[in-house]
Nucleic acid binder design. Structure first.
Lengths: 197, 197
DNA sequence: CGCGACGTTGATTTGCCTCAACGATTGTGG
DNA sequence: CCACAATCGTTGAGGCAAATCAACGTCGCG
């Protein structure tokens, strides 16, 4: 089954590709299915491939000393999710990535990526931009969380990802916002009371 | 006065450069002095150049709705400090960068950077790695702050940047850790009491 | 000299967490 | 297909980390 079309579209949106480059992508990216609750990356392992979500939903998170889950990022259709620190530094990851739904991804390994760079130098630029975008995304996330109360963060989350908010359980949203599920529930109660009556 | 040596060293450590590439760097980077308290980048402006600190100390921070300062990053000798989101996206920055000491920087504008990429493609790789490193640094910062109490964060700061902790006022350190100066003072009191007697 | 930044300390407040209990869903193995 | 378990969302009571406000002495600087 041909799943690479979304990836081609993704790159085409950044920069036109010729037939040879498209062919290279077809050859180097591999299709993979992760079942719900299955790990894509586990803490302590080295992140050895970049993942592009074709269908489904993944989360990347850290577990702190007290055992609490802190979600850095979700990834749904046509989004990337990687621990770039681990991938590039060949260091064991502090992060976990797993599937919240049955999820189809396209993956490229480090070796294949290096080969891609030499076979088609254009991908140097493409992946530089991709890294820049990841960076910006992370910084935006940090800036949003800085200096605003949990209620404001929840508001912004709803505005920014209206689709996700319907697709995720409140436990996941709470872990993304950095509050306890109980507290998020209280916030929702307060907010709906403030609107309805 | 020749100030470019530290920058050449910085790049050489990543990848050897030939004489022509060194010459390109000499031509494209410009020297600049910022006086203490002077802005390098002001909120609302677009970040139009990348800055490499030769001597001195800069800080990059956000001011939240309540007027509190949140420092994302310090930069001392041989470190970079940029709002990559604003620089690459040509968007107005939400961040400020200013000088905590009289500071000498080397800067390259966006146009000069583009020219550099076409004149010497090797810099594509170099700046890709640089962006990757910035990304990793930011992610490390985020992961450290996640799920650990202020006291632990302060400890880690002292271990990670022993030099900085002597060079900065406690107000700056507090703004970096994300706590009030009063609370940091209390932490210090508690910590020295726990060691001394 | 005087003024403003800094560091400290005390009293009070608050945003959010923890623990605990409950009904409502979801999902799973017999 | 049903029964039991697990997860989810909600609500209450109590607790703690850190903020806020205020006052004070110290220092460096213009």
């Amino acid at each position: 089954m041909e799943m690479i079309a979304p990836l081609l579209r993704f790159f085409q949106r950044m920069m036109p590709l010729d037939g040879e480059e498209e062919q290279l992508l077809r050859e180097t990216f591999r299709n993979r299915l992760y079942r719900k609750r299955q790990y894509v990356l586990q803490e302590g392992d080295v992140c050895n491939s970049l993942s592009f979500v074709v269908r489904g939903c993944l989360r990347m998170y850290k577990i702190d000393d007290a055992g609490n889950v802190h979600i850095l990022q979700f990834a749904v259709e046509e989004e990337w999710i990687n621990d770039l620190g681990s991938f590039h530094g060949l260091r064991p990851s502090q992060l976990n990535i797993d599937a919240l739904e049955d999820t189809v991804v396209l993956q490229i390994s480090r070796e294949e990526l290096v080969r891609l760079y030499t076979d088609a130098p254009k991908f140097n630029r493409l992946f530089r931009v991709l890294t820049e975008n990841s960076f910006v995304q992370l910084q935006e996330r940090l800036l949003q969380n800085i200096g605003s109360a949990a209620e404001d963060r929840y508001h912004r989350f709803l505005e920014l990802y209206p689709e996700l908010s319907g697709r995720l359980s409140q436990v996941q949203i709470a872990a993304y916002l950095g509050v306890s599920p109980e507290f998020l529930s209280r916030l929702r109660g307060k907010m709906s009371k403030a609107k309805k009556p």
